[in-house]
Design a protein around this nucleic acid. Structure first.
Length: 426
RNA sequence: GGAGGAAUGGCAGAGUGGUUGAAUGCACCGGUCUUGAAAACCGGCAUACGUGAGAGCGUAUCUGGGGUUCGAAUCCCUAUUCCUCCGCCA
């Protein structure tokens, strides 16, 4: 959620930012409307505070009068307080309505993109930040896509998942399951080695939590919802991990705070179809190791670059062909100020698959989280939040299977062997 | 799931209707003392919003919400959480 002070003080930047995010006419109009409502809110509060102040004073006087036995005089003052009370009640209600109205509007404004974010509407407009210049067509002639490899080596079954749950819930088996576990361990160890604190969070969260990181109301349809208990299945570990710091004030010297966690992620992915969802390309439940940082505003873009190179290091060690995209305004998430996507090339499918998304949210999340740090002057300021996948499993598995297949079997990347206990899948 | 108890500042812990935003202790920050440190002593130490150039002032907040009262941390209702006992259970 944007700060109202930003709307007031940096209106130009707000308007260009909205333009870059392809905001609607209605969203543009909200800017002035919000400021107007906020003016009204202030006016109402001043009025109300003055009344309350008067009534507090009178109450003290009444107390004194009672003590000195002047009940009669007190009676008159009581009437005045009753009068004030009626007025403040009305003002309270009005303020509440105005505040709700402000929030309803504010919550509809997306985060402002960083100056380096390119203009654009769709994924095709994303900028290639780092391209891959190695070979992409060096598979042997009989190479097959990962879902056929899965069948051949009995690594996972989507049809078993259909029987148990529905489409998009893979059941991993044998070496497929072990590979999964090896990747999780490998990713977690790399993250903890890099100074991230490992977290195992709940997989379901309440509304407050989902709202604070921006999943609600923006992505409500994307999450699984447990109606009976009013809980949401997490679409990413970012949600519980970042919310760990909701309503907190951290010491400036404790920044940056670095968290990592492995969780399954649940996404409804309504409306997806075709080649997009074949095999492990897009599933409703997948495993992911997430990294989160809470950073000082002056350092957050350095942190973003560190996170980028962390993810890059993983892909390099695994030996997968990858490229990095800087997302355009239209393809970025609602909450992000700058996002880099990592894509890995799946050689048998001959397509790029998104495996990581690394973003700086600046104060957009922390404003709703009320996540602050105390600066040198003892003032509380909003911290910046960042997160990234490091990495998302299902598609990594898909590309490992495809890219490392040989006529003898799939060769396990060196770095995983100490976790898998085998070096070939056959 | 049933019965009872509790919830106060970073922590511990007073406070049961009227200068209580809240005693006291610990922690923390600044100072005096000291060659340095410790101890001792002195001072400071919540958050949000409004208002003001600023010092400051005002309002709200003692788990959340509602109520009683001129006045609530204190009384009532309600929600939540935690603890104890019973039941069930990986």
């Amino acid at each position: 959620m944007l700060e109202i002070s930003t709307l007031r003080l940096e209106k130009e930047r707000v308007l260009t930012g909205l333009k870059k995010k392809n905001a609607s006419e209605a969203q543009f109009n909200m800017v002035d409307k919000i400021i107007e409502l906020d003016d009204l809110r202030k006016k109402l509060q001043t009025e109300n505070d003055n009344l309350l102040s008067e009534s507090n004073k009178i109450s003290k006087e009444i107390g004194d009068l009672f003590k000195s036995g002047k009940q009669a005089e007190a009676g008159e003052l009581k009437n005045r307080v009753a009068e004030i009370k009626e007025q403040t009640k009305a003002l309270d209600e009005q303020s509440k309505n105005v505040l709700t109205e402000i929030n309803d509007l504010l919550i509809q404004l997306p985060n402002l993109p960083h100056s380096s974010v390119p203009y654009g509407k769709h994924a095709e407009d994303n900028e290639v930040f780092k391209s891959w210049d190695g070979p992409l067509d060096d598979l042997f002639a009989e190479a097959i896509p990962h879902w056929e490899l899965a069948e051949k080596y009995k690594l996972f079954s989507l049809s078993d998942g259909v029987k148990l749950t529905g489409s998009g819930f893979p059941v991993y088996k044998g070496k497929g399951a072990k590979l999964q576990r090896a990747l999780i361990t490998y990713f977690l160890e790399k993250a903890t080695d890099a100074g991230y604190l490992e977290i195992m969070p709940p997989l379901m969260v309440n509304q407050d939590t989902a709202r604070a990181t921006g999943q609600l109301p923006d992505k409500e349809g994307q999450m699984y919802y447990v109606e009976r208990d009013d809980l949401y299945l997490i679409p990413t570990a970012e949600v519980p991990m970042t919310n760990l710091y909701r309503d907190t004030i951290v010491a400036e010297e404790d920044l940056p705070i670095k968290l990592t966690g492995y969780t399954p992620c649940f996404r409804r992915e309504a409306g997806s179809y075709g080649a997009d969802v074949k095999g492990l390309n897009r599933v409703h439940q997948f495993d992911k190791v997430e990294i989160v940082q809470i950073a000082h505003p002056s350092k957050s873009y350095n942190v973003l670059m560190q996170m980028l190179s962390h993810v890059e290091g993983l892909l390099q060690e695994l030996g997968l062909p990858y490229r990095i995209l800087r997302l355009c305004g239209g393809d970025m998430s609602f909450t992000s100020a700058l996002t880099f996507d990592f894509e890995v090339y799946s050689k048998a499918q001959k397509r790029w698959l998104e495996v990581s998304s690394v973003s700086n949210f600046e104060t957009f999340q922390s404003n709703r989280l009320m996540l602050r740090y105390k600066d040198g002057d003892g003032k509380n300021k909003l911290a910046h939040t960042l997160n990234g996948s490091a990495l998302a499993l299902a598609r990594i598995v898909a590309s490992i299977l495809e890219n490392f297949q040989t006529p003898e079997g799939v060769v396990v990347p060196d770095v995983l062997r100490k976790y898998t206990g085998f070096d070939i899948i056959n």
